[in-house]
Amino acid sequence: MNTRQSRLDVLHSLRERETRSGYGWALSTDVPPGLQQSLQTAAAQGLVELADREIRAELSAHEGRPVLWAARLSPQGHDVLTYLDASPDPTPNCTPPSADEQVIELRPAQMDALRVYANLGPVLRVAPADGLVERVRTAYFDRPGNRWRMTLTTEQIDSVAYAFYLRALSGSVAEANWFARKYGVTYRVDPATGRPGAVRPRARTVSP
């Protein structure tokens, strides 16, 4: 087990024990010596708080016996687990896309621009397509390829084009131009309707 996972396991164990205790502190009687040692290390990293003499005295009064050691998550330790719980699964989605879906891959800078649009969703007049915010949140990062990967519907892909359209009008056309070349979708005024929207090249009609 790697060091990062070991640290997370220690924090999870502490959270379970401090929740069970009813005091918001995990007491020495519920924490094995090996885990206590790991928690001492986590405390040195600012992820765990160890009870001082005053708090131990209060806990002793509640317990009716001496409490010589107690620990709880620090605010930072709590936030680490909260962030982890809200983070996407690092395992790639191996489910094949359905008929109306397509796998989209974005470079980190392009994904940053899309996240700005997704985060602004509630205040935008042209909101992200249904489900896009969740797809962005749970996107898989392919480290060797340095790409964020998502499976999107046609409507969600149109929203990505709109996000890059906003980015283009704000100063950088690189994302919109790249997306148009790569996926054949651009957001502009459609000559056929005179209205702005996602535009795809129309298939050419071959004369008989």
Rank of each mutant, 00 (worst) to 15 (best):
L73E: 00
V199Y: 03
F141H: 10
V123P: 00
G22S: 09
I55E: 15
P33L: 12
R125P: 07
R115G: 03
A192K: 14
N2M: 08
P191R: 09
R202H: 10
P75K: 13
A174Y: 04
S13D: 14
A198C: 09
R202S: 15
R65H: 14
G145Q: 12
L27S: 02
A51F: 04
A57F: 13
Q76M: 12
V31Y: 01
G64R: 03
E63R: 15
I157W: 06
N119E: 11
G34E: 15
V103G: 06
L59K: 03
T82P: 04
T41L: 08
V160T: 10
A57V: 11
R15M: 12
S207Q: 14
A99E: 15
A174K: 12
L73G: 01
R137I: 03
V189T: 15
V133F: 02
L114A: 08
S13A: 15
R53D: 12
V189D: 13
A192M: 08
P88D: 06
S28P: 07
I55W: 00
D30V: 01
A42H: 05
T95P: 02
S172D: 15
T29K: 13
V67D: 01
R125S: 15
R4P: 04
T82C: 07
L114I: 05
D30E: 06
A26E: 11
L50Q: 03
P128L: 03
V10H: 07
A71D: 02
R188E: 11
L47F: 04
R202I: 02
R143Q: 09
L39I: 00
P191V: 10
D30I: 01
L152A: 00
L68E: 14
P66D: 06
P90R: 06
R125T: 14
S159P: 05
Q5R: 10
E101H: 14
L27N: 01
C94P: 03
Q40G: 04
G184C: 07
P208V: 13
Q5S: 12
S38M: 03
Y23T: 15
A57H: 14
L152Y: 02
T91R: 15
Q5C: 04
E63N: 10
P88K: 00
A176C: 07
A168E: 15
A61D: 14
I104K: 00
A42D: 04
A161D: 05
L35Q: 11
L14C: 06
L114H: 06
N119I: 07
R135W: 01
R204V: 13
S74E: 01
E58L: 15
V10L: 14
T19P: 03
V48P: 01
R107S: 09
R200P: 01
H12S: 11
V126P: 02
V31P: 07
T95I: 12
I157L: 12
P108K: 01
S98D: 12
R20P: 00
P92C: 02
G184N: 07
S13I: 03
T19D: 13
A42L: 06
M1D: 07
L81G: 10
L166C: 15
A99Q: 15
N2R: 09
L27I: 05
R15T: 10
P128A: 08
Y162D: 03
S6T: 14
A51S: 11
V116Y: 08
L152T: 02
R200S: 12
W148L: 07
R7G: 11
D112S: 09
V126E: 12
T91C: 10
N93W: 07
G77I: 03
D79T: 10
Y165W: 15
Q5H: 08
G24Y: 08
Y187E: 02
A176Y: 02
D158W: 00
